[in-house]
Design a protein around this nucleic acid. Structure first.
Length: 431
RNA sequence: UCCACGGUAGCUCAGUCGGCAGAGCGGGUGGCUGUUAACCACUUGGUCGGGGGUUCGAGUCCCUCCCGUGGAGCCA
């Protein structure tokens, strides 16, 4: 007997097949039972008629609890009455495990309760849709870089020092060498990679020990960071536009059903069309002040400012050339504007805010040393990084894309915590 | 860390002026040959977050601690 996944059911109509899965829900009107069976690829309604099956098997219905695992045999047919469009007329059913009383009923639950049962919550159709879109987003992005000849460069997670002195780091003991820190960015190592391979990207988890409690923060999140030798700020702005355009088109093509299941309004995504509007930091400040914001020149944008800026246009918006004082030491100064750096942030539309932050890097040895000194960073820990400016330094640039925020935007979610299987937040490390 | 709100049955919540602890869902039993978060009947289910106080009497008022949710700051 052939084992078939529910997603492939259309190719096996009227064949006797086997499906292995779990009981999502059941209903009965006495002589006919309805079993909603899921197998991770979809849901199908199983029909159990008293006259078509042995009395012992028919009676098993009473023992089957929500999320019990089972193997069923039957013939599939298309039927408009069935959720999912297909039904399986059961000829046999073997319970694999009768589940204990399942904590998550098919009713409303609070976020705290669901997060406490995240390992089970993943089985629900909504989480299934979000995480399969996440998987496709990562695949699309990796395809984008691989097709353009980038090398995937895995950067270390345990590091000897901070990449950006400002943020708080998770600390751990490292044998007899003292402290090690969990990486908050792979960028510095990616720069070494770019000098070796020309164009590279890293993709991995990053860690921020900030006590952030907002809808767009996690303590552990995944970041994709390309780094390109001989690229300047204009190059990476155009490049990231191309990347986002590619990504959105790809997800619309391949994940329409899942987006629909999430009630995502597709119109704003279909409108995405590069090049995106660009605003310098100075222009953005001027605009915000006209809108009544109290922000002063030199301050970084807060959540409210980001929301205002990301709703001006129905496109992602690029803000570039921020003041030096609110940005990291490795960013190159703008030769044409005193006090500004050659950086850019991309804010997703519909109020989603920052999903990309990038810059042209300081490639001049003396100026980099000055900045390290000014910011009181431990020079010894950065010697290897400084070496990159001693041996064939070139202009180069790169950016980081936050995966969870990107998934949140594309799925139209209010909070990033559902965009990763097991979110790590200030108040949550279980499960 | 700060501000606001919340914690009552397994879950989601109601509980009036301080006066017998409630509903829906889930669980259990029975019924129903096309159900769509099925439905109908019956039934089960409580350390009212912990501690202290006021009171004849506290889920309800006061103090305190714990936990959670939303937001701020910081950032992707």
């Amino acid at each position: 007997m052939k084992w078939v996944y529910i997603s492939d059911i259309a190719q096996h109509l009227d064949e006797e097949i086997i499906i292995k899965g779990w009981l999502y829900n059941k209903r009965s009107s006495g002589r006919i039972h309805f079993l909603l069976i899921r197998d991770g690829t979809g849901i199908i309604q199983g029909i159990m008629e008293e006259k078509e099956i042995s009395p012992e098997t028919f009676a098993l219905y009473n023992d089957l609890t929500q999320e019990s695992s089972l193997i069923v045999q039957g013939k599939a047919r298309a039927d408009k009455r069935a959720p999912g469009g297909y039904e399986l007329y059961l000829t046999d059913l073997i319970p694999v495990h009768i589940a204990q009383e399942y904590p998550i009923a098919l009713k409303e639950h609070g976020t705290a309760f669901l997060m406490e049962h995240r390992h089970l919550w993943l089985r629900s159709s909504r989480q299934h849709a979000i995480l399969s879109i996440r998987s496709e987003i990562i695949k699309a992005l990796r395809d984008f870089f691989d097709e353009r000849g980038f090398i995937l460069l895995d950067t270390p997670i345990l590091t000897p020092a901070a990449c950006e002195g400002t943020t708080t780091l998770f600390e751990t003991e490292y044998f007899d060498s003292g402290k090690a820190y969990l990486s908050q960015s792979g960028q510095l190592y990616a720069e070494a990679g770019a000098m070796a391979f020309g164009k590279v990207y890293c993709f991995g988890p990053t860690f921020r020990a900030e006590k952030s409690k907002t809808r767009r923060h996690l303590t552990e999140f995944w970041m994709l960071e390309p780094e390109i030798a001989y690229a300047d700020l204009d190059y990476i702005m155009a490049f990231s536009e191309e990347m986002l355009q590619y990504l959105v088109e790809c997800i619309l093509t391949k994940k329409g059903k899942e987006l629909e299941a999430l009630d995502r309004d597709l119109a704003p995504l279909k409108k995405i069309n590069s090049p995106f509007p660009r605003l310098s930091y100075d222009e953005a400040i001027k605009y915000l002040q006209q809108q009544g914001s109290k922000i002063e020149w030199g301050e970084d944008f807060g959540g409210d400012e980001e929301t205002i800026l990301s709703t001006i246009y129905d496109q992602p918006i690029i803000i570039h050339r921020y003041p030096r004082q609110c940005k990291a030491f490795y960013m190159k100064g703008d030769p044409e504007a005193e006090g500004r750096v050659l950086n850019m942030d991309i804010l997703a539309p519909e109020g989603y805010g920052e999903i990309i932050g990038g810059s042209q890097r300081e490639d001049h040895l003396e100026r980099l040393l000055e900045k390290i000194e000014q910011q009181n960073l431990p020079k010894e820990a950065f010697e290897w990084y400084i070496d990159l400016r001693r041996y064939g330094s070139v202009p180069h640039a790169g950016f980081g894309l936050g995966i969870e925020r990107t998934v949140g935007w594309i799925c139209g979610l209010k909070h990033v915590r559902e965009t990763i299987p097991f979110p790590r937040m200030m108040e949550r490390i279980y499960p």
